[in-house]
Amino acid sequence: MKLSKLTGTRRGRVALAVIPVTIAASVLLGGVAQGAVPVSFAISGSQFKIGADKLAGTGFSQYAGVATATDGTEHPAAIANIKDAQLYNLCQSVVQDTPLGKVGLLITAGTGEEPAKATDLQIGMSDLSGTAIFKNIRIGVDASTVNTTDKGDAGDFAMDSDSIDIDGLQQVSWSTQAAVFQLTDLSLKITDGTECF
């Protein structure tokens, strides 16, 4: 059935596109906000942005990898693992071009005294900036021997450290997953394309 058969107005078509996304995201993130459910999600074929005033983590490693979209397209990615992470003033945004223009999803959390928290966090990214401090860092180790549970392939270049702190985090990612993601002070908004940075 064509969309025009379901609704005759531009506003109606926008509502049909936005409502399922909002409901699904609200249900998932509602549980996540309580720290009750493990999560694993990826934006298929699209990159998204993550920003935070500060990331403080323990148990860090990073190595080369590949992010694969559902259509089989492979994207080179830097895979970062953090055992326990705290993110202060966390922002995540994704924007899609649609026939009706740009539609975005903007999520914020950890905006008060209590940060957002993640355990067994893994990020597949293409770009990262900020001011970082590593403790007990090892650069040039074999990716199969890094000090995190998840490891890369033998012979690949990698780095790891006991802890990582990043101020002014700005990151462009293909995927993010975590055993548990606790989003305190959660806010989720549908936008016309507003991004974190």
Score class of each variant (00 low, 15 high):
75 H>T: 05
71 D>K: 06
92 Q>N: 10
96 Q>P: 00
138 R>N: 15
86 Q>Y: 11
46 S>C: 07
120 D>I: 00
118 A>T: 00
93 S>D: 05
82 I>M: 08
62 Q>A: 15
70 T>P: 13
62 Q>K: 09
57 G>C: 13
119 T>N: 07
120 D>M: 06
118 A>F: 04
108 T>Q: 11
72 G>Y: 09
114 E>M: 13
57 G>L: 13
51 G>I: 02
77 A>G: 00
98 T>E: 02
85 A>H: 04
59 G>E: 02
110 G>D: 04
102 K>F: 01
61 S>V: 00
112 G>W: 11
101 G>E: 03
61 S>E: 02
99 P>M: 05
48 F>Q: 03
60 F>G: 01
67 A>P: 02
103 V>P: 01
71 D>G: 07
132 A>T: 11
80 A>E: 07
77 A>V: 02
86 Q>N: 13
63 Y>T: 02
131 T>W: 13
131 T>K: 15
79 I>A: 01
131 T>A: 15
48 F>C: 01
81 N>F: 10
59 G>A: 08
110 G>C: 04
117 K>T: 14
52 A>H: 06
136 N>W: 05
65 G>I: 01
100 L>K: 04
111 T>Q: 12
43 I>W: 08
50 I>R: 03
97 D>N: 14
102 K>G: 01
105 L>T: 04
111 T>I: 11
133 I>Q: 15
123 I>D: 05
125 M>N: 14
87 L>T: 05
101 G>C: 03
48 F>P: 01
50 I>H: 06
82 I>L: 10
64 A>M: 09
133 I>D: 14
53 D>H: 08
138 R>F: 14
69 A>C: 09
138 R>I: 09
138 R>G: 11
55 L>Y: 12
63 Y>R: 02
127 D>S: 14
136 N>C: 07
54 K>H: 09
46 S>Y: 14
117 K>H: 11
56 A>Y: 08
111 T>E: 06
98 T>C: 04
124 G>N: 06
68 T>D: 04
136 N>K: 14
88 Y>T: 15
44 S>K: 10
124 G>V: 00
98 T>I: 06
48 F>Y: 03
58 T>I: 10
120 D>K: 10
